[in-house]
Every structure is written in C-alpha cells, then in structure tokens.
C-alpha cells in the first residue's frame, strides 16, 4: 500500500449529506475484476450529462477543483453499500484525503486499506474549512499525518484524532495481511481451542 505522510493539495467542498457509495460509483461500474481505472466513473451519474460531457455545475468538473486531492465532505459520507470500488474510484481520480464530520463505518475502514486518510472533525470546523476553500486563493490545505494537523492558513492549525494503529499503517504503507500472518501461531492456537469449545462449528 502507498504511504501517507504529508499532503499539500487543492481541497474541493462537496457538502451534500448522506452521499452513498452508489452515488460515488454506481453498480453498473462494478462489473470489473480489477481495482484500477475506476476514476473516470467516480460520481458518474451526477458528473456527466447524457452525452457524456461533463456537467459544469459539478464541483470536480470546475477548473479550480479538477485536480483536487482532498475532498471536504458532508455528514454520513460513504453510507450504504460496502463496495470498496468507491474508494478505488476516489483514489484513481487522485483523492488522497477526505475531511468530514462523519463517515460511514465500512467506507471509513476501506479508506485506510487503500492509503486514503479520512479525517473526522467537528462540523463547526468543517463549515470553517468549506468557507475557506471556496475562495481560490485559499483552496489549498496542508495535511500532516505524523503531527495530526491540518494547516488552513500560515498561522492556523487544526488538530485531528486518529487511531494509533491505523496511523502507523498509513505512515508505513504497511500490509495488514502480512502483519496478521506473522501471528499465525496465535491463530492456530485459537483454532484448536475452538474445536474443543465449539465442536459443532468444526467444519
């Protein structure tokens, strides 16, 4: 997995509430057997016109936000389906960090597995950031994961919280499965106890 340490990039405000993963990537684009190439389908139903041309009013189609690497989101972003394709599509588009007051659990989890940092802040801070990035001159945010801060101006910092294990994995670009396979003997021990304790589960 790609490491996440620091990021300086354009942040786009997308404050709609309850953005579900069907909206992020509609089901018709899930007929793939690859993780790659989904960026062009990101938000496809609200991003393109019938003829395939970009909708001018959609935020990521606007010149100053086309190259956004940060998305500032509304409440309950990523709700609904567990499809990791939503995160793959965001990642393939170039989004590396999400900032919002509330993310749906499965989506939040999926972000960390793909090197995307989802930051949770109080809604009052989100409102403040949205105001700021709505001006072109101040649409760039700096995120430092090691220090857990977002810089929104020369002298203005916001501190964010993050689970220490998840932070470590992002900073190192660690592969979860390798780490868990290192605990093979613990898992085997658990399994032999399981057979004794719950014999009806032994398949």
């Amino acid at each position: 997995m790609e490491k996440f340490t620091k990021l300086s990039g354009v942040a786009a405000p997308f404050t709609r509430i309850n953005v579900d993963t069907d909206l992020i990537i509609p089901a018709e684009h899930l007929k793939t057997i690859s993780r790659l190439g989904l960026g062009k389908h990101l938000f496809s139903y609200i991003r393109y016109n019938e003829d395939g041309s970009p909708k001018k009013e959609f935020i990521l189609n606007q010149d100053r936000y086309k190259k956004s690497t940060i998305l500032v989101t509304g409440k309950n972003f990523g709700c609904g389906s567990s499809r990791e394709h939503a995160v793959w599509a965001l990642s393939d588009f170039g989004i590396k960090c999400l900032i919002g007051s509330e993310f749906a659990d499965i989506f939040y989890n999926n972000c960390f597995k793909n090197g995307i940092l989802p930051i949770i802040l109080d809604q009052s801070y989100i409102d403040k950031i949205v105001k700021k990035i709505s001006f072109e001159k101040t649409s760039i945010l700096n995120v430092n994961l090691e220090k857990q801060i977002i810089t929104i101006a020369y002298d203005e910092f916001l501190k964010f919280k993050i689970d220490p294990y998840r932070k470590k994995c992002l900073l190192e670009g660690a592969d979860d499965i390798t780490l868990t396979l290192n605990k093979d003997s613990l898992i085997s021990k658990f399994e032999s106890n399981l057979k004794k304790k719950f014999p009806w589960l032994d398949r």
Binding site: E84, N110, K113, D176, I177, L181, I187
Partner: peptide, 12 residues
C-alpha cells in the same frame, strides 16, 4: 466488509 478485508479473511 470491503474487498481488502475479504482478502484478509481469506488469508487469515
């Protein structure tokens, strides 16, 4: 769970 976790469960 997401697909990365599907892989994690398959492997571990």
């Amino acid at each position: 769970i997401g697909t990365s976790e599907v892989e994690h469960v398959l492997a571990t």
